[in-house]
Design a protein around this nucleic acid. Structure first.
Length: 345
DNA sequence: GTTCTAGAAC
DNA sequence: GTTCTAGAAC
């Protein structure tokens, strides 16, 4: 009989049993002896899969839980396998997971007080295997790019290349793409620019720092130079790769991005793209969900960090309003038809 | 993040 | 009947 244990790496307390396909909530409390207020009482939701020999970890609390230095993100899941380290919150309180054969009997120093929920789908877990991220577009051309660079200055000299420990998870896709030379439109020692894989306008790039910054919340005063550089590179890409006089652009960040690793959107304001399909897409670029790059820099300058207001998610449900003339449209197809009016010939 | 699809809206 | 959205699954 197989048993799965969650083990505190710093041996703060006894191991916690994770039964197959049962949801277990862990966080601040007597069973973990974590008293840190940054850790929610229900910080993570764990569900072991004895067939796959891994544990699904969902971050329930607000502050970051990470697996091998990759932030999971609130409400999101990652796989946690033997050999990986789960940090309960803020890179603190390390845990490992262990699967043991035939250790059914001995209760040992097991901690019993964890909260359990009935399994949601106790069978049916066998079919899916970790997916590779996305699809690669084979026809991506970089022939007109990187003209100023000599051929082989690439990755070996870069100061930070973010390690992707869970490349299978979709939220890690940017960290994979940014390291793929075929995706890189521009790079220097601090940042790399890639095309958005699902552009929401005729021109849509992402500027990513090599330095691993998980999100806007991690920004501090010491990042100001980098933020400014990201902005400057964004403007350079507009200048180099578009007829910039005829295209309006905005540079900014999503308040709550879906993808890990901070990224500056550089997007033309035509919003002419088949990938723009729903209200969330629209509102994420045309409401205050989109924080202009300059505003982010100003906030960091003033307050030393970016404060994210609660309820930003609600902005994604706002009525569809044209970003140019403010006229409201009832559906996405009607909005897309309306937008044509504002395109230049 | 995208895809898929049930069922709401028309 | 078709179009469109929104939520689950990935």
């Amino acid at each position: 009989m197989l048993v799965c244990w969650l083990v505190s790496k710093d041996k703060k307390h006894g191991r916690i049993k994770l039964p197959h396909a049962e949801t277990v909530l862990i966080g601040r409390g007597p069973e973990t002896e974590i008293v840190d207020k940054k850790c929610s009482r229900h910080q993570v939701q764990l569900k072991a899969d004895y067939n796959k020999r891994y544990v699904k970890v969902k971050q329930v609390g607000t502050n970051p839980t990470s697996v091998d230095s990759v932030d999971i993100g609130k409400g999101q899941e990652m796989t946690f396998k033997p050999g990986s380290i789960l940090y309960m919150v803020n890179n603190l309180y390390p845990y490992v997971v262990e699967f043991f054969e035939g250790a059914g009997g001995s209760k040992g120093d097991e901690v019993k007080t964890c909260i359990k929920r009935p399994p949601e789908d106790s069978v049916n877990n066998d079919k899916e295997s970790p997916k590779k991220f996305g699809r690669m577009e084979s026809d991506r051309s970089i022939s007109n790019l990187n003209t100023s660079r000599s051929e082989k200055t690439s990755s070996e000299k870069l100061p930070h290349v973010p390690e992707v420990k869970n490349p299978g998870h979709w939220s890690q896709g940017l960290k994979v793409s940014m390291q793929d030379p075929a995706m890189q439109v521009f790079k220097d020692d601090k940042v790399v620019v890639i095309k958005d894989k699902y552009p929401k306008a005729r021109h849509h790039w992402l500027v990513l720092p090599w330095e691993s910054i998980s999100s806007l919340k991690a920004l501090r005063t010491e990042h100001l130079n980098l933020l400014q550089h990201m902005h400057t590179v964004g403007e350079k890409v507009i200048k180099d790769y578009t007829n910039s006089s005829s295209n309006k652009f905005r540079l900014g960040y999503h308040v709550i991005p879906s993808m890990s690793h901070i990224h500056l959107h550089v997007i033309s304001q035509d919003f002419d793209s088949p990938c723009l399909k729903n209200k969330k897409h629209w509102n994420s670029f045309t409401t205050d969900y989109f924080l202009q790059s300059e505003d982010v820099m100003e906030m960091v300058k003033q307050n030393g960090r970016v404060t994210v207001k609660d309820g930003a998610t609600e902005l994604l449900k706002s009525p569809l309003q044209c970003h140019v003339c403010k006229e409201q449209q009832s559906t996405i197809p009607k909005l897309k038809e309306h937008l044509k009016k504002h395109w230049k010939s």
